[in-house]
Design a binder for these strands. Sequence first.
DNA 1: CGCTGTGTTGACAGGTCTCAATATAAGTGG
DNA 2: CCACTTATATTGAGACCTGTCAACACAGCG
Lengths: 242, 242
Amino acid sequence: MQPNTLHRLGEFIDLDEDELSGFENICGARARAKRHTIIRAQGADVESVYLLAEGWVTSSVVLPDGERQIVNIHLPGDLLGMSSIVLSSAAETLTAVTASEFSSIRLPDFFAIFRDNPRVATALLLSVLQDRVTLMDRLIAIGRTSSARRLSSLLLHIHGRLSRLRPNDGASFHLPLTQVDLADVLGITPIHMNRVIKDLKSTGLIDFSGNTVTLNDVVKLRDFSALPVRDWARHPSWVSAR
Amino acid sequence: MQPNTLHRLGEFIDLDEDELSGFENICGARARAKRHTIIRAQGADVESVYLLAEGWVTSSVVLPDGERQIVNIHLPGDLLGMSSIVLSSAAETLTAVTASEFSSIRLPDFFAIFRDNPRVATALLLSVLQDRVTLMDRLIAIGRTSSARRLSSLLLHIHGRLSRLRPNDGASFHLPLTQVDLADVLGITPIHMNRVIKDLKSTGLIDFSGNTVTLNDVVKLRDFSALPVRDWARHPSWVSAR
DNA sequence: CGCTGTGTTGACAGGTCTCAATATAAGTGG
DNA sequence: CCACTTATATTGAGACCTGTCAACACAGCG
């Protein structure tokens, strides 16, 4: 796979080679971020968005009292830091959870796409909307379900994302997030997170040892999580052909 | 003010008359929704997005067990139902809280904008990103702050939105949402909502009688709510000129 | 005029948080 | 390579916030 062909723009629209290379041309050179380093801190100037090529990255916000909420978990192919475009300084802190690689896309280049490449621009909008649906589902989970259900839906979501990246992997996956991280995703305390994991393990729905997670019964787990399954409208008819 | 000039596309980019009328041309005729009626139910086919011209509309999701989470509160000028574009059926239920008026924009027309009117398309993306920041802040509030703080930040957000629509209004506003609605926004129980309102009133930070809300000290209330204030990047330099 | 939706309050249960302590693993510097 | 520090995981006890169940007042509405 070529370096910069790893993105999710083709998930909704079949882009041709010209369109794809038009996008890849605006991606800067690969940069690396070591584990546990900050790619862009909240409050920083917003000059670029980023295309994640390798590794796990979280997007989080720290409140004045020190509480942290992880808003998004990014995997290779994701665009990072998009929503801060509309702000005078970055809202979210982008942190490399594992050693990561990414390209920067400078904002003038990014917006040139809208002028030069309308179907890629459309794909970008759809990509942002997809991200918004995910954020909405996380909000629903936190607002209206118990911690155990939140954990279930999170693990299902991550597993689904990983399955798209590596379709042949099974029900087990490596989860580089700590229990503190997971708690910050789910809006609970690390201590409580630990107990919720223990409880969910004891039901037999999942295994969780070290950093390896196994979903023993995806159907039952999905049922337990009580969140709607999202059926994405891949390649919808209303997008104008080239 | 002309019927369809009420939208928020100009908040980030100065659009000229041609561009504005290009957008207004794709908006269908005004439709009306009575109070407490559903504009589009979750699970319905996604054929349009909607431009709200008059009234308050909520966007909510109902879970299998009957729990409801209100994900968004829409005021005139908002685009409704955008995120369901990427789904095979609508994720959210759009409900008229007050008598409302709106235009429908059919998806083929909507996406034609990307081909015909790149700067309007850019404005649409920025509009979606702005909405995403708001959703993110709601997520942070629900995940990491107490009920009273959540209520504070919600009231501040609504007051800010209303102030943009009617700059001369003061610190009082009419809130057509019931306590049940507010509870569904904040992820708590209606009974608890009632107590939180009582508590927050007793601090003197707000008044809340009937459907009229008064913010007695916006600065103190903002400080109490503990959520960052978003400074929107109006008319940023990196958007390509026409 | 009864019904339904909304607001309000009390008593109690339960989920989650806080504080505290310990064990283990990971990272760091000598 | 070891000693030390730090991060992470784990468990217990009790407090606190929020939810549940129940009851009642009130308004709007057909």
